[in-house]
């Protein structure tokens, strides 16, 4: 069952193309990471999903309906980002009361317990919270609403390391308790990769890859060996990155296009190492000439 289907989705702001012909489909009840560098179009995509903005071209179907300004999809969608704001007249506990009135699956007890754990005073206003506390409150708000489609846009921004770990666990536990589709956009892939099932990798408004974590991890490998041997490989393989130190070179290549077996590589003195998911994402979104070292040469 697909929760979201996008066909040729484009969004432009004037001349700037935020999204270009994005086609994707996301299964229900999965935790999906939306990964991309700054300005990759993550937020734009998420705002289209949440119905806040309208695509310039193409279609987007959420629960088989167009989400733009659609109250029916809105009832099952919650978007948490750092722009979430509440009336100045509401204290945090008032906000929880109000949300409980709106969201049928709202878990008020859980919200109270989580906020107590994070030592957030419920008598204050949302605007008065520190950046980290506000982020915590927003995540709690997004999770206890238990919407079938939960979007967290950079949810952990501003939280300290320890509480971030706690809240990745909170997301996971809440997901287990009430399975739903959760999209998390974040820069901190390394921290959260274990709780993700799939990754949607965006770059410059396009989808680079949409795969499970393990598929993505296996997509690229790093090969290290003598310069001459690596040069041979470079001749017929697309190279994502190359680093040369003395007479040793290491390259990042597509694992599926590498037709050589482990033994053959070993025979040539090339060692093969797996990459972490975040490294894979980093290399997949590498631009030519975006090597930071090149600036200093």
């Amino acid at each position: 069952m697909k929760v979201i289907r996008c066909e040729q989705l484009s969004k432009s702001y004037g001349h700037r193309q935020a999204l270009q012909q994005v086609t994707c489909a996301i299964d229900g009840q999965k935790i999906v990471g939306i990964i991309g560098r700054n300005g990759a179009g993550k937020s734009t995509l998420l705002h289209i999903f949440s119905g806040h903005i309208k695509a310039t071209n193409g279609t987007c179907q959420l629960f088989d309906q167009n989400p733009f300004n659609n109250i029916r999809t809105a009832a099952n969608t919650i978007l948490i980002d750092d722009q979430l704001s509440f009336s100045n007249y509401l204290s945090l506990s008032d906000i929880l009361t109000m949300a409980a009135d709106f969201y049928p699956n709202w878990q008020n007890d859980l919200a109270y317990r989580l906020l107590q754990y994070a030592e957030i005073d419920l008598a204050v206003k949302h605007q008065q919270l520190s950046k980290g506390h506000r982020a915590i409150f927003n995540v709690v708000y997004g999770l206890v609403a238990r919407c079938a489609f939960t979007i967290l846009d950079e949810p952990m921004n501003g939280m300290d390391e320890a509480i971030r770990q706690d809240f990745y666990r909170v997301i996971l536990k809440e997901y287990i308790a009430f399975p739903r589709t959760i999209l998390i956009a974040s820069h901190h892939l390394q921290e959260m990769e274990t709780i993700l099932e799939e990754i949607l990798l965006l770059h410059k408004g396009k989808i680079i890859t949409h795969a499970t974590i393990d598929e993505l991890r296996e997509q690229l490998i790093s090969l290290t060996g003598p310069n001459e041997e690596i040069d041979v490989l470079c001749a017929y393989l697309p190279i994502y990155a190359r680093k040369t130190m003395a007479n040793l070179s290491s390259i990042i290549v597509d694992a599926y296009q590498l037709k050589l077996s482990h033994e053959e590589l070993q025979a040539r003195g090339i060692t093969q190492t797996a990459l972490s998911v975040s490294d894979v994402c980093k290399y997949l979104t590498y631009e030519e000439g975006s090597d930071i070292d090149a600036i200093f040469d």
Binding site: G51, N69, I71, A74, S85, I95, F102, Y141
Partner: peptide, 13 residues
Amino acid sequence: RRDDLAIISSQAS
């Protein structure tokens, strides 16, 4: 209007 986005709503509602 931003405050409305925190709860179930569409622009029209």
